[in-house]
Amino acid sequence: MQRLNPAPRRAVLQRQQLLRFRGHSVTWLVPLLLLVTITVVDFNTTGRFRIVSWCVFVSAIAAALCGVWTTAAFAVLSLATYVGTDVVAAEQYKSGPSDFVLVAVGGVLSVLACELRVRGEQRLMHMMDVADTTRRTVLRPLPPSWGGLDHAAVYLAADAEARVGGDFYDVQPGPHGTRVLVGDVQGKGLGAVEAAAALLGTFREAAYHEADLAVVARRLETRMRRHRLHLGALGRSDGDRFATAVLVGFPQDDEGYVDLVGFGHEAPLAVGPDGSVRRLPQGDGLPLGLADLTGDPGPPPVRRVPLAPGETVLMVTDGVTEARDEQGCFYPLADRLARAVARDPRLAEPARLVRFVRDGTLRHCGGHLADDTTVFAVRRTARDTPVRGRSPS
């Protein structure tokens, strides 16, 4: 059975949200009330004041609010109303055939305009479906608790219509522990999405198979350089892209520590259930794709840092740290978070944490994001079961 395209249905649903009563669309009431008003006024005024020809506006308004068939029905109804009203009028006050042609032609044009509008809505909804599919492909949906980790994420694209940008994140469990990657590709647009997809594809394979987190880091660097070389060979002007990122490993052999590799990214924060907030090491690595500038092909060092039970690792992109208020001041994430967690230690829970940072960022910048924004929080679950032998995903 051929699957029907959901875009037309979604377009109709979106349009019907304009005016609803008890769950049903009543947008047709607007042109109907206008038609009734025109008829009543025309009948209850002197013969010198004829407004029956205004029926042409009824189908035009229906074209802006209703579907094609409803608009066609109002075009016919408006023409019938014109004829009926004009027939009973006194001979000296009849509007005549010229206004009849006006109402008739106006109705036809309204139906055509409505058809064009509906097709445009369908194309728009199809593009939104494509954007949603692209986003789910790049930022795949993650189970609420996966690989022994509880996590929560908020992703806000600076371009609300695009719905996807250069920020990326993922969680990959494997035989050697669970690894987390959060990053931000330089620039915007589809080129940034391509780079993010390339890095995530490499991360998902390397994080599962490689025992050494340094090797995972090295493969990410190599993938970014290969991506740049490919773009350069194509003659693309965006072949100089790079990406900042932070790679976190949750080893199975020692649950009191995490391994960190930084690629020029904002340092993660550790938020504890006791109300503490501390900054983890930022790392010495250059952004992905720029390691060859130093002439050193080796990966950045892996730092093993202690992580207390119940502590949540918070990672954000520069859409948070570089959010500005009306005075141009950056959002003081660490300070705001420390005060809030001190008041309510339950804020250390991943879901509460990302909501707090999201809401605080939006309030600080007045809802005007200058860059893609990602907030990602992760911590070990109370039942951290081994993932050894887990099938690849």
Rank of each mutant, 00 (worst) to 15 (best):
G262K: 00
P301C: 00
P281E: 05
T294L: 15
G328K: 13
P350R: 10
A308E: 15
A243E: 01
D284G: 13
L353M: 12
P345A: 03
L260T: 01
D274T: 13
V313T: 14
A342Q: 14
V248A: 12
E255P: 15
A338C: 04
V320F: 01
R343I: 00
A245S: 03
L288Q: 00
R304C: 11
L293D: 07
A245I: 01
T294Y: 01
A342I: 08
V246K: 02
A338W: 09
V271Q: 09
P350N: 09
V261T: 08
V341Y: 03
V320P: 04
A351H: 12
V316S: 02
D274I: 10
G310S: 10
M315C: 11
R303L: 14
R304I: 09
D344V: 00
R324F: 02
E326D: 14
T317M: 03
R336N: 12
A267H: 04
E349G: 09
R324P: 13
D274L: 00
G249M: 09
A348L: 04
G249Y: 04
D318M: 01
R278S: 09
R279E: 05
V277H: 05
D344Q: 10
R324A: 06
P345G: 09
R346G: 14
P345Y: 03
E322P: 05
G264Y: 11
M315H: 01
A323S: 15
L337Q: 13
V248R: 04
Y257R: 15
D296Y: 05
R336E: 13
P287W: 01
P300E: 02
R339P: 00
Q252N: 09
G289C: 03
E322V: 05
H265D: 04
P332C: 07
P345H: 11
G249H: 11
H265G: 00
Q327E: 13
A291K: 08
D344G: 09
L353S: 10
A245C: 07
F330G: 00
P306C: 12
R343C: 07
V271C: 06
G298I: 00
L347Y: 06
R241Y: 00
A351S: 14
R352F: 03
P281R: 02
P251L: 12
P297L: 08
D284A: 13
V316I: 04
A270I: 06
G256D: 15
G264C: 12
V316Q: 03
G275E: 14
T317Q: 02
D274P: 07
E322N: 11
G289H: 06
A243F: 11
V246H: 06
V320Q: 02
R304A: 11
D259G: 07
T317W: 06
T312L: 10
V277P: 02
D296W: 07
L293G: 08
R336L: 13
P251K: 13
P251D: 13
E322R: 12
L247Y: 03
R304D: 02
